[in-house]
Design a protein around this nucleic acid. Sequence first.
DNA 1: ACCAGGCTGCGACTAAAGTCACTGGCACAC
DNA 2: GTGTGCCAGTGACTTTAGTCGCAGCCTGGT
Lengths: 233, 233
Amino acid sequence: MPEPANVASALGALPLFSGLSPDELRLLAAHAVRKRFAQGELLFSEGDPCRGLHIIATGKLRIFKSSSSGREQVLAVEGPGGSVAELPVFDGGSYPASVSAVEDSQILFISRDELRRFCLDHPEVALKILAVVGARLRRLVGIIEELSFATVRQRLVAALLRLAQNEGTRTPQGIEFQLPGTHQDLAHQLGTVRELVSRNLMRLQAEGLLHVEARSIVVRDMPGLTAILESNP
Amino acid sequence: MPEPANVASALGALPLFSGLSPDELRLLAAHAVRKRFAQGELLFSEGDPCRGLHIIATGKLRIFKSSSSGREQVLAVEGPGGSVAELPVFDGGSYPASVSAVEDSQILFISRDELRRFCLDHPEVALKILAVVGARLRRLVGIIEELSFATVRQRLVAALLRLAQNEGTRTPQGIEFQLPGTHQDLAHQLGTVRELVSRNLMRLQAEGLLHVEARSIVVRDMPGLTAILESNP
DNA sequence: ACCAGGCTGCGACTAAAGTCACTGGCACAC
DNA sequence: GTGTGCCAGTGACTTTAGTCGCAGCCTGGT
């Protein structure tokens, strides 16, 4: 956990500000404010006026939209080193989505004006931010593609395969990993409801593609799963 | 239509490059290449390596994803003054979606490297680009919200209301406007299929909310339509 | 005039998605 | 222990989305 004196070096370790000189980092760090958020706490809501950029020192944040009928759609989950609200800092509008802490989190906050000023003095930072925003845009386009072309079943499989890839461990039975949250959480990420997650998991198990035990998943038939992704609707 | 000598002033008129000095504009214009695309022609496909930024002088472009089964999802339609592929210029990746010309179009093209260099020398341009990308990101989030929370019927109504707002003319019977393309085109924008557009239009007419005649739509009951948007799924 | 091809409107159907209501399990607080 | 509350599984059902096939219409070309 960064002490005030270490904020500068913490910033330097982030993709956003890598390559800056110690002096520049100190300058930036002088303007950064540290904040803490407890698990489940809301950093801000969709529609709130944008105050600045949030950078994750430790913890995990969830960017999401919620509907009037209680449904949610997760847009991104960001871990340490990630940032949130890079964009509305620059276009002057309000936040387009809500952000809450998935775990207890420590955040470095840089106000809108500070960041804009810093970017004007350090154009390469602006380019880095553009790159980060670009990556976010790609992910959003990916979500749109999934929502618009894929079934819940396919989206679920895609999510499971991503988990297997990133956090899976090889075992004799197949690749094993843990679901990162409840079925409800997963449903929110897929833009659907709990029941469908539960049912589809069971169905995949019945088909012999998976083995499900509580939140532990074992992928038994990888080719079978990837085939589902390619099959039409 | 901009003659080579006028490219600079044409650029200056764009939101992206407003506020630059004539000298700077000339410098940028020197690197811009003019291209023409016929109606329906593809500028590039999703996955192609990114070569640079496209700015629309005249005409209209459509940014879209297409699925293996022939479905399409339009992400944006950009008119004169708009730009396309601002983002992959900076994150080094390939184009995330395809772009085609809706009408015959004249395009100013600035290569990736030129633009990056120019941004480093003119940080305020980088900020302007960030603002444009920000707006795009907002629209994508809006699409995700609609896809994930709204029915086809609601998405259709939302699209009709946008059209009424932007291009509608008041008449005694209600607000009248023309559909900008075929039902198929509209279906692609909503991420659905032709039949559902057709059926839902007829249904709205049967309910007395609209009057449909070929591609001419008359909104007869605005409050009734907005009520549809707010009703749960 | 006539034909070809794109656009539109249906009807009948299938398949997904989502809703509702209920069950049982598990964990934690008291 | 014994509630209390969250979580997961499931059956029965309704609604929405999407598919297929076809017929009518208009347009532009020959």
